[in-house]
């Protein structure tokens, strides 16, 4: 081969996105090959949309060797849920939805109030779903740059029979040789996009021309200004006495529980404009948008120890 061609390939064509993509595909194929009954968690959010494209790249022209699973808090944005269903149909893949309401009916989740954030209780329904289907591995779209306890999590993260994460007792992870072994009743959470950042996700969405729910782009919305950020007005979030509802042009950087996910003011109408905004933003993704991560320095870590993603 001509050296010129080689140099073009190695130095110019193989970008950081290519490197991240190839790593993620490799991880997903390891899961498919070594785990007996894996699942891929798909919420309709941007990270899990990227995960689906990576799964297409890993397994097409065949079907995915695992179902898609969503733990629905029923506190989700309706645009995201309809997107979730549409995408699963387009891909022709099996989607399993389990609802937090099931756990509430069974009595395994007890809420203090109807409008309380449900993020923390997702773990209960997730663990019940894992038990129902006997999943030994669940792939999720969490990233290490999201939160500082995630920065120390392995790509293959072992959970005991209670679904718990023990940060002090993690398996060493070397090269890209992954230890996928579990005993019956235990399981592994796998994070194929661990090494991606928010910026990488947006660049990939742009490069792959991925469709994402509209609420990620700038739109007008009624919001309430609260100390932690802007709260979107919905059935579940209504102004308290003394609070004023205003219309603002906003977009969501993350989409989670509607009662604790804040939009940011933005005019970005497409992925390219979001990339430009992301390049200059001075606030982290979760710091700007998640009320539940602002409660303590360790709120994510505590949730993860309970079985959360």
């Amino acid at each position: 081969m001509e050296l010129a061609e080689k140099e073009r390939m190695t130095a110019h064509t193989f970008t950081h996105l290519d490197a991240l993509e190839s790593e993620s595909i490799h991880i997903m194929r390891e899961v498919a090959a070594e785990c007996k009954n894996p699942a891929l968690l798909f919420s309709g959010g941007k990270d899990s949309i990227v995960m689906l494209r990576l799964a297409e790249k890993a397994f097409r022209p065949a079907k995915f060797p695992f179902p898609l699973v969503h733990i629905d808090t029923e506190h989700n944005f309706p645009e995201v849920i309809s997107f979730r269903d549409k995408r699963a149909v387009e891909l022709g893949e099996r989607l399993i939805v389990r609802s937090l309401e099931d756990s509430i009916r069974k009595g395994t989740v007890v809420l203090k109030s109807a409008t309380q954030s449900r993020n923390v209780f997702q773990s209960v329904t997730l663990l019940e779903t894992i038990a129902e289907f006997g999943f030994d591995a669940c792939m999720g779209g969490a990233r290490r740059d999201e939160e500082k306890s995630r920065a120390k999590e392995r790509i293959f993260s072992f959970r005991d029979e209670f679904g718990q994460w023990d940060p002090k007792n993690q398996r060493p992870e070397l090269w890209d040789i992954y230890n996928t072994r579990v005993h019956a009743g235990e399981n592994i959470r796998v994070f194929p996009i661990s090494n991606w950042t928010e910026m990488d996700i947006w660049q990939y969405i742009e490069r792959e021309r991925l469709e994402i729910p509209d609420i990620y782009f700038a739109h007008e919305r009624e919001v309430i200004q609260r100390p932690g950020g802007l709260m979107p007005v919905s059935e579940l979030v209504q102004p308290q006495p003394g609070e004023k509802v205003v219309r603002k042009t906003v977009r969501f950087r993350t989409v989670g529980d509607i009662t604790c996910t804040c939009p940011v003011e933005s005019n970005a109408k497409n992925a390219l404009e979001i990339i430009a905004e992301t390049a200059i933003t001075r606030i982290t993704e979760r710091g700007a948008t998640r009320m539940d991560d602002q409660t303590s320095d360790a709120s994510m870590e505590l949730r993860k120890k309970e079985g959360y993603f």
Partner: peptide, 13 residues
Amino acid sequence: GLQAEREQGITID
């Protein structure tokens, strides 16, 4: 990143 690390001022992992 971990609670124990911040409490004890050490790095575990």
